[in-house]
Design a protein around this nucleic acid. Structure first.
Length: 861
DNA sequence: TCTCACACCTTTGAAGTGG
DNA sequence: CCACTTCAAAGGTGTGAGA
């Protein structure tokens, strides 16, 4: 089944960092001044650049500025404000007054000077208030504007590991993407939103693999020309900015100084700080080339600091990128990282985390070389425990009580904390934090719940008003839609992925059509569909082999939704007479979908289920099956793999041949009669292969089972498959001698000939589509989940559809059924992963643990 | 340390049919 | 004109070999 993404809104409301201004030794003014110079001319190294006293002052700090991490130790001493407000400086392009409320102590206060140059603390620390937005402003009117980093959670995850950004000659996108939103803007005012990226310090770094940390490798290379990247949709009206997210997903980073594409030029192995500038738009002017000539306000998010690299240095970063960037899904397979490997990987994360935090706690990181020795073991363990406390939810993780820590260590508590995650302490550690387990956000562990903590666990999937079609689209250069939200307080979710507004979710084909017998005429029923994972695997399609292979563990499951047939409730009388068709149901890969479509993961296998629910008049839409009296029906032949593009050309062909909407593709230009013959053979071949494999082993393990020695047996299976396919009653058990006879007589060909009959929809389609997976019940499902595995479900034995009574058009005679009394707690996913589904393009939302997934959406057409 | 070809995957827009 | 298909091309990923 094809998945389509719908533009949508998502709730990021409670995750927004406060743009509280705090003092810091991060000398914004200096950076600003440097960056604000002529965009083509700000090439001087930070420490050299000074054109005013103010800047000199700041440059002193700048030269020390290395990272939020370094910054961290100072934050407690910081005073409110590093906003430097100047008079509304229309006439004066430069701030006429810079107010340094406080200078933070120099970095060297925390360690020896030598140390500083020897080893630089990674910008990876957990016990920092990460969201310390740094702000600079030269225009009074802009002072009250706040800027929110929309994908903060994701940035935090990377930041904790030490964000790296690949730069290439042709330009590479940033991931995570910078997405920001604004509040406090004037609706009628127009603004440009500008991004630039400035060096964090004048150092060059190298990565010590054996130590998994960054070291200073010397002085910075001459800086690349600094460029201002004006968001392509600029100017925005304030109205627009209130409603939509500004996404810099199109911006690219390059190491090519001669770049002519407007990409941002950086040096590899240098650290950088992205900055967002909101500039009052002046109609008469062209593109902004010199910030100093503008009225602007700048926003800096320390968690977006990164190191530019031409190849990833830290494998944890690589892994996190692969896990969170949809374009890298191809690398999520287990062939590259087996479960065996993952375990140590998890440990690595711990190790990394531990190392970083311990270094911070017990001295300047630069001393690590010497301090990491056994003599510090105890202290290090203390820190480890501290980190765990902080990580796993001790309210107000700081200050902590050393004796408590010791006690905890002695009792093995860290392990216990770990255990709370219910999942391997895995890579994006904080990914788990979203899974709904109720520990405080590790970063904001001590914050009051509503502030920066995880949003309400079970964000109600309130069916949203359909997005106005006129919504001004994308804030980004892409078709990516951003969304409308009238509330400035609670910022509803923005669609973050570049999906076009007019893109719709594909319907299911074949359509699920069912009919019922045995219903009570006067009773009313709702007919509900949901689609659950068949297993906890992710698949990929091996083209050369024309078969699906397991590619690894399943991605975190999307929220399970109940799709109530829009004609519900039906009377029993109606159900007796008519077919219930789910032709309107749509599938999407957009987790934030607000249209009631069913959300699935691409490259995963699913089982649709039909639930017949006794209708209770007084109730609204069915949102929790457990509250209802119901009976479920499962047709194993309706198992499918969700894809974003068809993998198997036979599926494509079958869809074209049988879906009326695809008639346009039935022309001979695409597939001549000459071609069709082999195609038919292909069907046979495919079917044969699959079934033979099924007989002799897991098709996913085909590699080993495909050998010629099995030929005879495989042919037997081939025949068996055909018997089953074309309606031998009681296809199982089959008679081997019959099969042999059939094979010898060329019977398969005869069976094939019968396919000339137009395929009946849906049953034959479902059974024929060439993707005859191993029986999902037997193959993938754990025995109690879908109910007792039917010993030998007469899987597909419908005779060619007699004629036409619609009511009989559906259905395998005996679907697997599940009673409400059974242990199956519908509608939970069959394989509720403990993972939180993580989508880089959606605001990170906390969810309840999957064990409490409860579908909420109801499609109302 | 960097570059490039590559496989894998998603996204996008075009082309076609039908209502 | 819109809804709905699939196709095919474009382009975003990290990989891994080689310079």
């Amino acid at each position: 089944m094809l998945l389509g993404a719908m533009p949508d809104e998502s709730a990021a409301a409670l995750l927004l960092p406060t743009a509280k201004t705090r003092a810091t030794d991060f000398s914004i003014a200096a950076i600003m001044a440097r960056g604000a110079g002529s965009p083509q001319s700000c090439t001087r190294p930070p420490s050299v650049h000074s054109t005013s006293n103010d800047e000199q002052i700041h440059d002193d700090h700048l030269s020390r500025l290395s990272s939020p991490g370094l910054d961290d130790g100072l934050e407690d001493d910081d005073i409110e404000v590093d906003v430097e407000i100047c008079s509304d400086g229309a006439p004066s392009p430069r701030p006429n007054k810079i107010k340094m409320l406080r200078e933070s102590p120099p970095i060297s206060d925390c360690g020896s000077e030598a140390a500083e140059t020897d080893r630089i603390s990674p910008d990876l620390v957990l016990d920092r208030p990460v969201s310390k937005t740094k702000i600079l402003c030269n225009c009074e009117e802009l002072v009250n504007i706040e800027c929110h980093l929309e994908t903060k959670d994701l940035w935090d995850k990377f930041h904790d590991l030490g964000t790296e950004m690949i730069i290439t000659k042709s330009g590479r996108r940033m991931f995570p993407t910078l997405r920001v939103s604004f509040t406090g803007v004037r609706p009628e005012q127009r603004y440009a939103v500008i991004l630039d990226i400035v060096p964090v310090d004048n150092k060059r770094y190298r990565y010590a693999y054996h130590r998994s940390s960054w070291l200073v490798a010397g002085k910075a290379d001459p800086p690349a020309p600094c460029r201002l990247y004006t968001h392509p949709d600029s100017p925005f009206t304030g109205e627009q900015l209130r409603k939509q997210v500004v996404s810099f997903e199109k911006v690219k980073l390059t190491n090519n100084e001669m770049d002519k594409h407007g990409h941002i030029v950086l040096n590899s192995m240098h650290r950088y700080q992205p900055r967002i500038h909101l500039v009052k738009w002046k109609d008469h002017t062209g593109p902004v080339t010199d910030l100093e000539q503008e009225q602007y306000r700048s926003f800096i998010f320390p968690e977006t600091v990164f190191t530019a690299v031409t190849a990833y240095q830290n494998q944890l970063i690589t892994k996190l990128k692969i896990d969170s960037n949809p374009f890298a899904k191809g690398f999520r397979d287990s062939s590259r990282l087996t479960d065996f490997d993952r375990e140590p990987m998890d440990s690595l994360f711990m190790e990394q985390h531990f190392l970083r935090n311990s270094l911070r706690l017990y001295g300047d990181p630069l001393d690590a070389e010497n301090n990491n020795s056994g003599s510090l073991f105890s202290a290090a363990m203390m820190e480890k425990a501290r980190a765990h406390i902080q990580m796993w939810g001790r309210a107000g993780g700081n200050p902590y009580n050393p004796s408590e820590l010791h006690a905890m260590l002695l009792s093995g508590a860290p392990g216990q904390y770990l255990a709370r995650s219910a999942v391997p302490l895995g890579i994006p550690t904080q990914l788990w934090s979203q899974s709904g387990v109720s520990w405080p956000n590790p970063i904001h562990g001590g914050l009051p719940p509503g502030l920066l903590g995880p949003p309400p666990p079970h964000r109600p999937q309130i069916t949203p008003p359909p997005p106005p079609s006129s919504t001004p689209s994308s804030s980004s250069g892409s078709p990516s839609p951003t969304t409308v939200n009238s509330s400035s307080e609670l910022r509803l979710p923005k669609a973050l992925f570049p999906s076009t507004l007019h893109r719709f979710s594909p319907r299911m084909f074949p359509t699920l059509r069912v009919s019922f017998t045995g219903v009570r005429p006067e009773q009313r029923y709702a007919v509900i569909l949901d689609i659950v994972p068949v297993d906890n695997k992710r698949y990929r399609y091996a083209y050369h082999r024309s078969s699906w292979l397991v590619a690894g563990k399943a991605d975190p499951p999307a929220p399970c939704r109940l799709y109530t047939h829009p004609d519900s409730p039906f009377t029993g009388e109606q159900l007796r007479k008519q077919v219930v068709s789910f032709e309107k149901v749509k599938l999407t890969n957009n987790e934030m979908d607000k249209h009631g479509h069913i959300v699935l993961n691409s490259m995963h296998r699913y089982q649709p289920r039909i639930h017949l629910v006794k209708w209770k008049d007084h109730t609204g839409p069915v949102t929790d099956l457990e509250q209802e009296q119901y009976r479920s029906f499962i047709f194993p032949e309706t198992v499918f793999t969700a894809v974003t593009a068809y993998q198997n050309q036979l599926i494509t062909k079958l869809k074209i041949d049988s879906n009326p909407f695809a008639k346009g593709f039935r022309d001979s230009s695409r597939l001549t009669d000459f071609d069709r013959e082999p195609m038919d053979s292909l069907f046979m071949e495919q079917h044969f292969l699959r079934n033979s494999l099924r007989l002799y082993g897991d098709p996913l393990d085909a590699e080993n089972n495909n050998s010629g020695s099995l030929f005879s047996a495989a042919m037997m299976e081939k025949a068996r498959a055909h018997i089953q396919m074309w309606g031998r009653a009681g296809g199982n058990p089959y008679n081997p001698s019959e099969l042999h006879a059939m094979l010898l007589s060329g019977a398969p060909g005869q069976y094939l000939a019968r396919s000339a009959v137009p395929l009946g929809i849906p049953t034959q389609l479902w059974s024929q589509s060439g993707v005859s997976w191993p029986n999902p019940i037997h193959g993938g499902l754990p025995p109690g989940l879908l109910g007792p595995p039917p010993p030998h479900r007469p899987q597909i034995t419908p005779p060619p559809p007699p004629s036409s009574t619609p009511s009989s058009s559906s259905g395998s005679p005996s679907p697997t059924t599940v009673n409400s009394s059974s242990e199956l707690r519908l509608p939970k996913a069959l394989f509720p992963s403990t993972l939180h589904r993580f989508s880089p393009y959606t605001p990170s939302l906390s969810r309840t643990s999957t064990s409490s997934i409860s579908p909420t959406s109801r499609l109302t057409h």
